[in-house]
Each structure stands twice: as structure tokens, then as C-alpha cells.
Amino acid sequence: MISKTINLTLKVWRQNRGEKKGRLETYSAKNISVDMSFLEMLDVVNEELTKNKKETIAFDHDCREGICGMCGAVVNGRPHGHEKETTLCQLHMRHFSDGDIIVIEPWRARAFPLIKDLVVDRSALDNIIQAGGFISVNAGGAPDANALPISKEIAEAAFNAAACIGCGACVAACPNASAMLFVSAKVSQFALLPQGRPEAARRARTMVRMMDQCGFGNCSNETECEAECPKGISISNIARLNREFLKAEFS
């Protein structure tokens, strides 16, 4: 297929493992088809580097269909780039123009230590889930699935919160590097559903505590997280988290 191609200049953050300071290095990306995804464009640059016997740019990625949450970089100052509700793997080059200069940096947050180049350690998000992001039920003991009717509205609201992919863009977008949107999405999913109510208070408390312990900042209502979330998670979840947390603390 013959499709339009563009040429770009990339400024990519390079930092070796254990290196204290990184730097932006310049690469050119030539003959990039506009049908390619952003990560495929990086693949082309990496192929070129390999052919020149240079080390490739390390970046996290896996499913490349916007659902695993593994990819992500700050592109021209915005997590996952400038397209609304889009992960980096789903950002296509048709949204860039010939001659553009693109700056690519890793997520930056105290709670996400840098590993190499664009790869950061997001295990703090797993720690938060471990602190209470579950319903305590063992396999084998559940009642019939239809024994507990749940209204369509509630089920959909819970689903919308549950759509979070845990990529960490909300943290990267926040001037305080807060993980409130991430925490509130999980707290909301379970707080909305009757199955999650028995542990709702404990869950809100333990997850917020763990967030603080991991070194994430607090929420000061900047709403950057919502603007950059690739899955459109609403900040109304943060309001719900605050209510759940206050209820839990004062009861």
C-alpha cells in the first residue's frame, strides 16, 4: 500500500541503568508512514540504530492495542501524546506533520524510579492494589451470579471506573505526582457494587495510606489526570474516594 510518509526529528531521553543523570539525544525518523503507530515509528528508529550497531531505545510496550497499560511516555510534554483518550501505542502518526520535532521523555514521579531510557518502575501501583484493591472472596464459595441483582446504572458506573488500565499517565500528568485518580477508580468500582460494600471503609483507608507511603503526592484538584487519562476515567471518582475516606475515618 502506498501511503503518505513524513520525516521527523526526535529528542529522546536516554539514561543508562544506574546513571544519575540522563540526557535528550537527537534522532531522525525518516519515511514514517502516517498509518504507523507511535511505537511502530520508534521500532523503525530502533531498527536503524541496530543496523548501525548502536544500542536501541528502551521503552515498555506489550499489547499495542491500548488495553494492557504497559506503554507510555511523555510526548511533547503530554503523557501518551496530545490525542484525547489515547494510549501511546494507539497514537498514530497521521496526527503529526512532516518536519515536526518530537520530545519523548519517561514518566517522571518520585514513586516511579527510572530504570532505563523511557522505562520506569511502576510497582508502587501494584502495592496500592495489594493494600486493599480487592474483594476478599475465595474461589468456590460464591452464590449464584444472578442471586444479587445490580441495577444497570450502577453496573455501568462500576464498569467505567474499572476501565482503568494502570498505566500511570495520571501520575505523570499531575504536578503533585498524585495517584488519586488510579486509587479512586478502584475504590469506586468496589464501593459502587454491593459485593464491595462490606470492605469499603477499610479499603479506602488502606489504599490511601499505601499511596502516601509509596511517595505519591496529594490531590490539589488540578484535573490534569482526567485530561490525560487514556481511558477517560472521571475525576468524580476522586470525589467519591474522598467521601469514602472521610466516612471511614470518622466512623
Binding site: A142, P149, K152
Partner: peptide, 22 residues
Amino acid sequence: CNIIDHCVAQGIPFARDYGGFL
């Protein structure tokens, strides 16, 4: 059948109809 029961108990938000059933 056991899988669906367990998944609902875990809080998985499956699609539901207006009566609240799956």
C-alpha cells in the same frame, strides 16, 4: 457456571439488563 458465580463475587462489572440481572 462456577466461573461466572466467582467472577461476580469478585466485583467484575458484567453487562446487566434493566432488571439488574446479567
